[in-house]
């Protein structure tokens, strides 16, 4: 099982540090979700894990070797990344896109081996895209398009798959569809998956391991059932909430209350909320 970990990872845009000496081990063969507020550094962490960003300090190890020292093609055979809202040239068909996932496996004269063909077909099958394979990407719905992108990442046949907000711009049904697909891939093929998720409840439901980031540091990590508490949500997201148990999945379910003690329009409903918090930490956020 491949082990991806960071040690003392520091990334900065200009003078402002985004990640501050972050040390993290991604559990192999499991789904890890990175959560946190906008600007907390979760996407930056994902991009650094995929060697898209050069860290100012520290490094990322893939099975003990720094990925910044390895040949980039070598890394690409073991670790795939799907950026947020990727774009493809006009008119590219799904199959052509998925075939691009074979890029790191090809050589100067070896452009389309049998292994390439098999990988593309099985990626299309796994994502249920076989019927749409010859359609241009721009003719698909948002969810189908995202499945096509995931198929491309699958065709890369990497042990580790990194995804940056795979559910953005999708409606609720498509969000669930994409997450179930990823869950299945993890269960059936043991792929290590790391994804940035905006929705804490989705993260709780689909991730084995939750990493909550705050101001470029890890605030908490572990099994969602242990990590997600009203305190953690208050600290990480700056919001009061009530944590229930998801009646379907048995995972934590976070019901947000209010940010800064704003009152509800229906005071009789507000009574069911936990006692209002001491206002000080929330006010300090501004």
């Amino acid at each position: 099982m491949p082990v991806l970990r960071t040690e003392g990872l520091t990334v900065a845009y200009g003078e402002t540090p985004v990640l501050d000496g972050l040390t993290l081990t991604i559990p192999a063969g499991r789904i890890t979700a990175l959560v946190g507020r906008n600007g907390c550094g979760k996407s930056t962490l994902l991009r650094a894990l995929a060697r898209l960003l050069r860290p100012r300090g520290g490094t990322v190890y893939l099975d003990g070797a720094s990925i910044f020292r390895m040949p980039t093609r070598e890394v690409a055979r073991r670790l795939g990344i799907l950026p947020q809202a990727p774009t493809a040239p006009e008119g590219l068909t799904v199959r052509e896109l998925v075939a691009l996932g074979r890029y790191p496996h090809q050589g100067w004269l070896r452009h389309w081996s049998e292994a390439d063909e098999r990988a593309v077909e099985s990626a299309l099958a796994a994502t249920g895209m076989l019927d749409l394979a010859d359609r241009p990407l721009d003719a698909l719905s948002g969810g189908q398009r995202q499945r096509a992108w995931i198929a491309m990442a699958l065709a890369q046949e990497t042990e580790i798959l990194l995804l940056d907000e795979p559910t953005t711009y999708l409606d609720m049904a498509h969000q669930v569809e994409v997450l179930e697909l990823l869950y299945e891939l993890n269960q059936a093929r043991g792929r290590t998956i790391v994804m940035v998720l905006h929705d804490l409840n989705q993260a709780c439901r689909y991730a084995h391991h939750l990493v909550a980031l705050k101001d470029g540091r890890i605030y908490a990590q572990g099994d969602p059932r242990e990590v997600v508490t009203p305190e953690m949500v208050r600290e990480v997201f700056g919001i009061e909430c009530c944590v229930l148990t998801d009646p379907l999945a048995g995972t934590p379910l976070c019901i947000p209350a209010a940010c800064k003690g704003c009152t509800f329009r229906r005071p009789e409903d507000a009574r069911r909320l936990p006692a209002p918090p001491p206002a000080a930490p929330a006010a300090a956020e501004v």
Partner: peptide, 23 residues
């Protein structure tokens, strides 16, 4: 013509191209 497949990858996102192992 020999570099056509590199062109295909570069035509995608910059991040995607990097992620796919393109220099």
């Amino acid at each position: 013509l020999l570099m056509a497949r590199h062109l295909d990858v570069l035509h995608l996102d910059e991040d995607l191209a990097r992620g796919l192992g393109s220099r």
